[in-house]
Design a protein around this nucleic acid. Structure first.
Lengths: 135, 135
DNA sequence: CTTGACTTTAAACCTTACTATAAGGTTTAA
DNA sequence: TTAAACCTTATAGTAAGGTTTAAAGTCAAG
């Protein structure tokens, strides 16, 4: 198995070398070995692991959650049910965030529709609404 | 006009006194005056301004954007068009965030549906997908 | 053998919106 | 009078996910 330096791996994945050291601190990715002088050496498995991390992140998992998934993934005796549960919790979390944003957007869109865009701020219904005394 | 201390105002609005000092540093809210001993004294306008800030925050504006809105609001010669533009930009921003979350959710939901929840992680389609080599 | 690219470490810095702390001064109620 | 509650300032910490820097060590090429 050929090994590569941190810079090579970082370039391959399209990520900073500092990020790899950061992931190592978080326990997400450990180099296969170190040279006598202390340089990190990574194998092919590292690149695969990094792609896993990036995919999971793209799906909305935090690094902490990714660590959890990796731990499950690393342990062949762990149950698929746990992975499913983590995924379901994440889906519910994302749904809540979407709902909050949709509410925000609707509030803004209502105000925006009322504003002609003409005149001075004294007649601006958006500011008037933000200044309203009632909830 | 009666004035109140920072603690009274904070309690009235349901916010920490530290937050009011923070807002002052950000230029969002200046006390009407100071006592000889340096205590901040706020008038009724401060409470109105704070409710403005909280409403705008609830609509998804960052404090920096709220400052911008307040500056427009404070200047009766500013145009309603600018407020409308700020609002539209915020709506577009929120829409993008919603779309990103919806994509995330769909990706996760697809994986979740494929997982029986039985067996060990070796047969888990969620982990398998995260480990896939192709994009 | 030297140059330049690369690596090492710890630590500070970035954003946002607070929150908490320390060390001291002020005001209020009993 | 005195304790509690309040106020002042500046500074630092929180979450999240890194980025940047500094000072030093290492490696390959010419």
């Amino acid at each position: 198995m050929q090994t590569m330096t941190i810079g090579k791996l970082a370039r391959d994945i399209g990520i900073g070398a500092g990020t790899l050291r950061y992931y190592e601190r978080l326990g997400l990715l450990t180099p296969a070995e170190r040279t006598a002088s202390g340089y990190r050496k990574y194998g092919e498995a590292a690149a695969r692991r990094l792609r896993f991390i990036r995919r999971a992140q793209a799906l909305g998992f935090t690094l902490e959650e990714v660590a959890e998934l990796l731990k499950l993934s690393d342990n062949p005796r762990a149950s698929a049910r746990q992975v499913k549960k983590t995924t379901q919790a994440k889906i519910a979390d994302i749904e809540q965030r979407i709902e909050a944003l949709v509410r925000m957007k609707q509030g803004l869109a209502t105000l925006e529709a009322q504003c002609s865009g003409h005149g001075h701020t004294g007649e601006c219904p958006i500011l008037a609404a933000l200044n309203q005394e009632d909830e």
